[in-house]
Every structure is written in C-alpha cells, then in structure tokens.
Amino acid sequence: ALDDALAEIEALAALGHVKAVGETGLDYFRTGPEGMAAQERSFRAHIEIAKRQGKALVIHDRDAHADVLRVLREEGAPERTVFHCYSGDADMARECAAAGYYMSFAGTVTFKNAAPLREALAVAPLELVLVETDAPYLTPAPYRGRPNAPYLIPLTVRAMAAVRGIDEDAMATALAANTARAFNY
C-alpha cells in the first residue's frame, strides 16, 4: 500500500498549485522498531518526490531529531525544507540554520516550560523563521487547553517578537517574506 500511496503523492506533487510535500518525517512517540523502519522508508521517498517535483518539504519531527537530520544529510534535502512545529533545541537550530532549513514555530513557544524552544528561536536566523497554528492543538498561552485556530497567530507572533527583541510589525514582515520564499509564492 505504501508504494501506491507514494505514486499518488508524486502525482499530486506534480500539480502546479501544490506548494509542498508533507507533512512527512519521523515520529518516535509510541513507535516500535518496525514502525520506525517503515517511517524512514516513507520519509526518504517523500524527500525524493519533493526534490523531483521542485517542491518544499514539510517535516514532522517528534522525538526523532537526530534521525531526521541524519536522513536529510544522507538523502540530500530539497532546496526548501521546513521543520513544521519546530521542537528542537538551540544546537539543533544552529544545525538547521547551517543547512538552510526553515524552522516554523507554533503556540508552544509561549508555554512556560518551553525555554529550550525559545532559545532555539533566539539563535535561528530571522530569515529562516516561520510561524504556524498547528491547529487544533498547541494553542498559545493564555488560551492553552482550548482548540487552536489561525486567529490566535498574533499571540505566537507577539511572543516570537519578544524573544527576538524586535517589534511585532518587523516580525510579521519577516515571517511573510520567509513564507513566500519557503513556499515559492
């Protein structure tokens, strides 16, 4: 079934209005060794599809940072690679930045216990930073626990601007330009 699914993804990725392949990647939360191997095979195939079709690659990475980065190095990442709902630390942000990967931050950056995530945002080059809702989850504070939605993006942007020490308009302007570059608008 995976081969049939990948063929369909390739066909869809060839469409002009499709901007990215993904969300794809590795998720080791509650995943055994057999599942990890299947995910890696799928992830590698998605990387190749994104490269063949000239599309951005949107990565899901949960509890698998080292392996996601390893697979990207081994396969050669697409020109435009986005870490959806970035969850790494500052060291990983430096590694992503060196490779030119975009890092997209969600409401988690507002959580009190997310100091490592804010440290990652602080060291990520502004031109590689994106924002997202990851709706319906990861709602920014003070609405954590309620369903997330795009109307709450300003709370995340405000927190991101504070971490970066810039005003909200400057952050929003950078995020808009980065999004256009990342998704080839």
Score class of each variant (00 low, 15 high):
Ala1Pro: 13
Ala1Val: 14
Leu2Cys: 12
Asp4Cys: 08
Asp4Gly: 13
Asp4Glu: 12
Leu6Trp: 02
Ala7Ile: 05
Ala7Pro: 04
Ile9Gln: 06
Glu10Ser: 14
Ala11Cys: 06
Ala11Gln: 12
Ala13Trp: 03
Ala13Leu: 00
Ala14Trp: 00
Ala14Gln: 05
Gly16Asn: 06
Gly16Pro: 09
His17Ala: 15
Val18Trp: 00
Lys19Leu: 15
Lys19Thr: 13
Lys19Gln: 15
Ala20Asn: 00
Val21Ala: 04
Val21Pro: 04
Gly22Pro: 03
Gly22Asn: 06
Thr24Trp: 01
Thr24Ile: 00
Thr24Phe: 01
Thr24Lys: 00
Thr24Leu: 07
Gly25Gln: 03
Leu26Met: 01
Asp27Val: 00
Arg30Phe: 14
Arg30Asn: 14
Gly32Thr: 10
Glu34Cys: 11
Gly35Val: 07
Met36Arg: 15
Ala37Arg: 14
Gln39Trp: 03
Gln39Cys: 07
Glu40Pro: 04
Arg41Tyr: 07
Phe43Leu: 02
Ala45Arg: 11
His46Ala: 11
Glu48Thr: 15
Ile49Cys: 09
Ile49His: 08
Ala50Ser: 07
Ala50Lys: 01
Lys51Leu: 09
Lys55Ala: 03
Lys55Asp: 02
Ala56Trp: 02
Ile59Asn: 08
Asp61His: 11
Arg62Gln: 01
Asp63Ala: 12
Asp63Phe: 03
Asp63Ile: 08
Asp63Trp: 01
Ala64Arg: 07
His65Phe: 13
His65Ala: 13
His65Lys: 14
Leu69Gly: 01
Arg70Val: 12
Val71Leu: 08
Arg73Gln: 13
Glu79Lys: 12
Arg80Cys: 08
Arg80Ser: 12
Val82Cys: 00
Cys85Ala: 09
Cys85Phe: 07
Cys85Ile: 05
Gly88Gln: 04
Asp89Pro: 13
Asp89Cys: 09
Ala90Trp: 02
Ala93Ile: 04
Glu95Ala: 14
Cys96His: 06
Cys96Val: 10
Cys96Arg: 07
Ala97Ser: 15
Ala97His: 10
Ala98Gln: 13
Gly100Tyr: 04
Tyr101His: 14
Tyr102Arg: 05
Ser104Ile: 00
Ser104Tyr: 01
Ser104Gln: 06
Phe105Thr: 07
Thr108Leu: 07
Lys112Met: 03
Ala114Ile: 05
Arg118Thr: 06
Leu121Phe: 01
Val123Lys: 02
Ala124Val: 10
Pro125Asn: 11
Pro125Ala: 09
Pro125Thr: 06
Leu126Tyr: 11
Leu126Asn: 09
Glu127Ser: 14
Leu128Gly: 05
Val129Asn: 02
Leu130Pro: 00
Leu130Gly: 05
Leu130Thr: 02
Thr133Ala: 04
Tyr137Pro: 08
Leu138Gln: 06
Thr139Tyr: 02
Thr139Ala: 05
Arg144Val: 04
Gly145Lys: 06
Gly145Trp: 11
Arg146Tyr: 03
Asn148Pro: 02
Ala149Asp: 13
Tyr151Gln: 15
Leu152Ala: 04
Leu152Asn: 06
Pro154His: 05
Leu155Ser: 09
Val157Trp: 04
Met160Lys: 01
Ala162Lys: 10
Arg164Leu: 13
Arg164Cys: 11
Gly165Pro: 07
Gly165Arg: 10
Ile166Val: 14
Glu168Tyr: 07
Ala170Phe: 06
Ala170Asn: 12
Met171Lys: 10
Ala174Glu: 10
Ala177Val: 08
Asn178Thr: 05
Ala180Lys: 14
Ala180Gly: 12
Ala180Ile: 11
Arg181Pro: 03
Phe183Gly: 01
Tyr185Pro: 15
Tyr185Val: 15
